[in-house]
């Protein structure tokens, strides 16, 4: 028997045959939902090998390492109740964690709340850049929901839709998008002018396809304004929710797109690094979850012309949905996505 876990993090034991069967079931689910090719028999064998090894920790073979980007890095140590400023935090990412990039971010991790304090963010970025070597992103979430009442100016689509007010809800989304684009371009411009190596639109699409479209348009505008700016777009879920229902980008309806389709929209807008997400099903086993994760991520990497960095953390990318991700599951997901999922980074 081999020890593994459920998606909720609890420990279970399975035979090697059961693990392989669950990986195959996960692959079938990915093929069925995303309409992508399944993994080959060789890839299934390799994935089964990674998930049936008795060791606590698994790593890639030498030479198969990839680039690591981290969202919201500069506030993560603070979240652990470590009394630390953001610049020392970034220096720890560089020289202790040996991360390949880092990200300056505000505790209220959305573009809208950053807008009134962007001057302070610029100063912090300027000072961080003087004392670090690795590339530093400025990151925040598009978070379109902040633009509807009671937080924002527009009627709340979540209240309008149940009342059947489809037209009014769509108009609200369109207004929210306009404001969100302005904030993303404003903050992105300021942080690029402060010297940031790139801007990370993290958790894109969390409010459905209006959120995704707003971020694509903000990317276009920033690229037009600063042709050398580097944009990373990290997604919020594997499937773009259709909250508006009639929004297109370059002739493609955005609702319902899976990672291998999302990345093509991101490329058209000018995104430089794309971060796809595949969610965890907490009731299924980790072998089932990794089967579907690697299948969708590999399809995304193969469809892409730009670097793809899968999101692999709490509740996404084959990692249980817990605050303390177990190293057995996390290291296996990390290695599997590098070696079978054909990722350029994580």
């Amino acid at each position: 028997m081999v020890q593994t876990r459920l998606g909720d993090g609890s420990t279970i034991e399975m035979t090697e045959e059961e693990i392989k069967a669950d990986i195959e079931r996960g692959i079938e689910d990915a093929v069925d939902r995303a309409k992508v090719d399944p993994l080959s028999e060789d890839e299934i064998e390799k994935l089964t090998d990674i998930y049936t090894r008795p060791s606590k920790f698994v790593s890639v073979e030498t030479g198969n390492e990839l680039v690591l980007t981290f969202d919201e890095g500069s506030v993560k140590l603070k979240r652990l109740a470590v009394s630390i400023g953001r610049i020392p935090d970034l220096q720890i990412y560089e020289r202790v964690f040996c991360s390949d990039t880092a990200e300056l971010a505000h505790v209220d991790y959305s573009f809208k709340p950053v807008k009134p304090i962007v001057a302070e963010e610029q100063i912090e970025m300027e000072q961080a850049l003087l004392s670090t070597v690795l590339p530093i992103y400025y990151g925040a979430m598009p978070n379109l929901s902040l633009y509807s009442q009671p937080d924002g100016a527009f009627p709340n689509p979540a209240e309008l839709l149940p009342k059947g007010k489809i037209k009014e809800a769509r108009e609200a989304y369109e207004g929210m998008m306009e404001h969100a684009i302005k904030d993303m371009v404003y903050v992105g411009s300021k942080m690029y002018e402060a010297g940031a190596d790139g801007i990370n639109f993290d958790t894109t699409g969390s409010a459905g396809e209006p959120d995704f479209l707003a971020t694509l348009k903000a990317t276009e505008k920033l690229k037009e304004k600063y042709p050398d700016i580097s944009i990373e777009m990290g997604m919020s879920g594997e499937f773009v929710l259709g909250m508006h229902g009639d929004l297109e980008y370059d002739g493609t309806n955005l609702a319902g797109l899976y990672p291998h389709q999302q990345v093509k929209m991101a490329e058209k807008a000018g995104v430089d690094v794309f971060g796809p997400v595949v969610n965890i099903n907490s009731s299924e086993t980790i072998p089932w979850n990794i089967g579907r994760t690697v299948t969708m991520m590999k399809a995304c990497a193969e469809a892409s012309d730009i670097p793809v960095h899968a999101n692999v953390g709490m509740g996404v990318g084959g990692v249980p949905i817990v605050e303390t991700p177990p190293v057995d599951s996390l290291s296996r997901a990390s290695a599997a996505l590098a070696e079978i999922g054909k990722q350029d980074g994580l």
Binding site: T69, C98, V273
Partner: peptide
Amino acid sequence: VISHALASGMGGVRTAGDLVARMQM
């Protein structure tokens, strides 16, 4: 962060990870 760095990371400024990242970006 540490688990990823050990499992699959290039190693940042300890090796050449920051340089490879710059070419991707």
